[in-house]
């Protein structure tokens, strides 16, 4: 049971990096993108379904590994605050940038998306350094690595979703290439997580708690997966929405 819940935690974290990774990557690339509205429109229908993977990660930490949750979050206090503020800025940028007309309003919130995305990538470097016990300075290096991988993943996503368009510098990539860049994007979290697995498993909640969680959550898993697949089927091609 402990191993099952560690598996759920790992899948959610890897999924977050693989999915939200391209949203953050596109955010990072926005200052250098020719067609910003097209680029934001391309990720827009995916963002809500992607960012929620991290909400679920923290939920699973809280429910299945509670003693670890308090220790990890409070132990990484400034980094977690940075991550949250960056996340909030990125989201606010997406929700607000097209709510008023005017070039200055839109470029202000586009900058918020880009800065928030940068803050997210760098904070993840800090989190990875923190959970592996690496010195803080190495966290900056990890952060840059995460940012570069996410940017690559984001660029691949644009080249897949908007092939041969200016937003992707005219490039074109297949779905297979996108799966490849997703695998690369989740490496920074999968590797340390695999190394920490025995320690995390040992910190699981008692079996009474895990049983209740399993009984309620496992029957819903097909629905969770189905909803995610539906998002991809609905928005992988066709007109780019203009709401974000």
């Amino acid at each position: 049971m402990e191993i099952l819940w560690f598996g759920i935690l790992a899948v959610l974290l890897a999924g977050y990096f693989a999915l939200e990774g391209f949203d953050i990557g596109v955010g990072l690339l926005l200052p250098f993108t020719a067609e910003r509205d097209r680029a934001v429109g391309a990720i827009a229908p995916f963002v809500l379904a992607n960012e929620v993977w991290l909400v679920a990660v923290v939920g699973v930490l809280f429910g299945a590994f509670p003693s670890l949750e308090g220790e990890v979050l409070s132990g990484l206090y400034p980094v977690v605050v940075g991550l949250l503020v960056s996340w909030i800025l990125r989201d606010a940028g997406l929700w607000f940038r097209r709510r008023l007309d005017g070039a200055r309003w839109r470029s202000f919130w586009t900058a918020a998306v880009a800065l928030g995305s940068l803050g997210l990538a760098l904070s993840w470097g800090g989190v990875i350094a923190g959970i592996t016990g690496a010195p803080a300075l190495l966290g900056v290096v990890y952060g840059v690595v995460v940012a570069v991988l996410f940017a690559f993943h984001g660029w691949t996503f644009l080249a897949w979703r908007l092939p041969e368009e200016a937003a992707a510098q005219g490039a074109s990539r297949t779905g297979r290439a996108l799966a490849g860049s997703a695998a690369v994007a989740c490496l920074p979290i999968v590797v340390p997580l695999a190394a920490l697995a025995p320690e995390v498993v040992g910190r699981a909640a008692p079996s009474a708690t895990l049983t209740v969680l399993s009984l309620i959550v496992l029957p819903v898993v097909p629905l969770l997966a189905g909803a995610q697949i539906w998002v991809w089927r609905a928005f992988r091609r066709g007109a780019v929405p203009t709401f974000f």
Partner: peptide, 25 residues
């Protein structure tokens, strides 16, 4: 956490995860 964490975990996985996905749709 062994008690209080459970409803919050269920909320994120069973409720909000779906809510956010369907809202996007």
């Amino acid at each position: 956490g062994d008690v209080f964490g459970a409803p919050l975990a269920v909320e994120t996985l069973v409720a909000f995860f779906l809510e956010s996905t369907f809202l996007g749709l």
